[in-house]
Write a protein that binds this DNA or RNA. Structure first.
Length: 487
RNA sequence: GGCGACGUAGCCAAGUGGUAAGGCAGUGGUCUGCAAAACCAUUAUUCAGCGGUUCAAAUCCGCUCGUCGCCUCCA
């Protein structure tokens, strides 16, 4: 099945047709490492993690490059505040980033280039642009001449005139045009600097992605991704640089994911409404966060609420509980009649196809999850209806559906733990949170049983309420009374 | 001011021309001494509003209202 991806450049869904047969080359803009990462960064990492996993599952070889911006104004400013060297600060937060990514179970990209290790490539790209008349040095800086690049504004759907009308850009006397942007910045005292044909300085932000994507993926590659906020100016400028220098096309498909919002407003440092990844991970396991992120299609905004996270946790429990049920199924017997309805059997057999279809349609994880939960509902129903000696074909159906659930969950990076251990582990964790011993619970249950035998319901209910006060709930079943910690 | 996205049940969210997936919550049922839990079933004559195109529209077109984003560093 062909995979369709929404391309920001054409504003349409397009067929993924890799330049190289069966090999997808993907470049994603990574973080500027000067602080802990927030949930928005987690969405970016998780979305592309899912994309890479899905493409590989569909048989593509994927070369995935994601950079680190480790020299930049914000890093320099923050380092100065803290009285450390910028490189030290950048290195520290790259380390913190890895801690978060590992906790989230994000697969490492194949190549993770750092800006400071590619200064020569940036200088040479800048020189190419000057040679072509697309850039000019001015007072130790080098600027890109946007007016010379005909397609400038094509990605973000703007033109130079409109942008100037509402521009809040400080006028820089050195620039020929207010929208010209820096490829190279002259060093100020005390800042990190490298030698260049234009004097000591450091690269501009946009040039690093052009230089590093060219080095590792070539002039043209398949997919370039990032958050919607990078469309302008970052990606627009990358296109101007890369296409300008190579005279060829650059990335074929531009993928941009939506923001994480809080109370429907973009999460950002300036608004002060951001949550770091570790803030959230303290309260919810990574798999819950993943399920939350994938509960909406990647291009839509995603509002962060306690309620949404709780829903995600309930959903994760459902997946694990279903898988645990399948794992504890008895052996079936050949020749027994099936109790499974034809339409339910079909639903289970079609799960993989439906999942793939949703994912092929611009990675519609929300729809894919809908199909997954639909199948789980059917599996639970069958599991409950199954007689003590079930038909072999019914057991096989559930086991095969369980395998499919496991397989598609892996693509989303959820349900990676042993389901029976998960269910037990959850119980243990709840057990640790109660203030009563198991002996005491069992003693009270025996006491209640005595009362119940005498049909002394009042006394029986007193015990039940007593246990409930300790968050213990009782289940009276045909085989006696069991108990659970209320979640 | 320019450009763009979005508006589907109490909440979240699919659906992109053929008569509204899924989840959470709610309601009913099974079970129970009564409960709880679990499971089963069920929940939008209707898709912000108004017009238009069409045999047929949540889906296409136009206008209105509302929300958000980009135009400055930002995932």
């Amino acid at each position: 099945m062909p995979i369709k991806i929404y391309n920001t450049l054409s504003r349409k869904k397009e067929l993924l047709q890799p330049l190289e047969e069966n090999h997808v080359k993907l470049y994603v803009c990574g973080i500027t490492s000067y602080d802990y990462c927030h949930i928005g960064h987690a969405r970016s990492a998780l979305v592309f993690d899912m994309v890479v996993r899905y493409l590989r599952y569909q048989g593509y070889a994927v070369t995935f490059v994601r950079n680190f911006t480790d020299v930049d104004d914000k890093i320099i400013a923050r380092a100065a505040e803290q009285g450390v060297e910028p490189v030290v600060l950048a290195q520290r937060f790259i380390h913190e980033f890895y801690t978060d990514m590992d906790e989230l179970g994000v697969l490492r990209p194949d190549i993770e280039p750092r800006a400071t290790e590619h200064i020569q490539e940036m200088i040479s790209l800048t020189r190419d642009l000057i040679d072509k008349g697309l850039a000019y040095p001015a007072g130790g800086d080098v600027y890109y001449r946007v007016g010379k690049f005909a397609d400038y504004g094509k990605l973000s759907g703007r033109n130079l005139e409109d942008m100037q009308a509402g521009a809040r850009i400080e006028v820089n006397a050195q620039k020929e045009h207010p929208m010209d942007f820096a490829l190279w910045k002259k060093a100020k005292p005390g800042e990190p600097k490298w030698a260049s044909p234009w004097g000591e300085g450091r690269p501009g932000w946009h040039i690093e992605c052009s230089a590093m994507s060219r080095k590792y993926l070539g002039d043209a590659f398949d997919i370039h991704g990032g958050g919607k906020d990078l469309i302008f100016p970052h990606h627009e400028n990358e296109i101007a640089q890369s296409c300008g220098a190579s005279g060829k096309s650059f990335a074929n498909i531009w993928m941009h994911h939506g923001f994480v919002t809080i109370k429907d407003e973009k999460m950002s440092k300036s608004l002060g409404n951001f949550l770091t990844i570790r803030d959230v991970l303290r309260q919810y396991p990574a798999e819950v966060l993943r399920l939350f992120i994938f509960s909406t299609q990647y291009r839509n905004p995603l509002d962060f609420t306690e309620n949404a996270l709780r829903d995600a946790r309930t959903g994760l429990d459902r997946i694990y509980e279903c898988l645990a049920m399948v794992a504890s199924l008895p052996d079936g017997r050949e020749g027994e009649a099936s109790i499974v309805l034809k339409k339910d059997r079909k639903k289970l057999l079609n799960l993989k196809d439906r999942f793939d279809q949703a994912m092929d349609n611009d990675f519609n994880t929300a729809q894919a999850l809908g199909f997954l939960f639909d199948a789980i509902k059917v599996m639970n129903k069958i599991g409950r209806l199954l007689p003590d000696v079930p038909a072999a074909q019914d057991v096989e159906l559930l086991q095969s559906a369980g395998n499919t659930v496991q397989e598609v969950s892996d693509i989303l990076g959820v349900a990676g733990r042993d389901p029976q251990q998960y269910v037990e582990g959850k119980k243990k964790k709840l057990l640790a949170s109660i203030d009563i011993s198991e002996e005491e619970i069992n003693r009270l249950i025996r006491q209640r049983d005595e009362a119940r035998k005498k049909k002394d319901w009042a006394a029986s209910d007193v015990v039940r309420d007593q246990l409930l006060a300790h968050n213990i709930e009782l289940h009276d079943g045909p085989e006696g009374t069991s108990w659970d910690v209320k979640s």
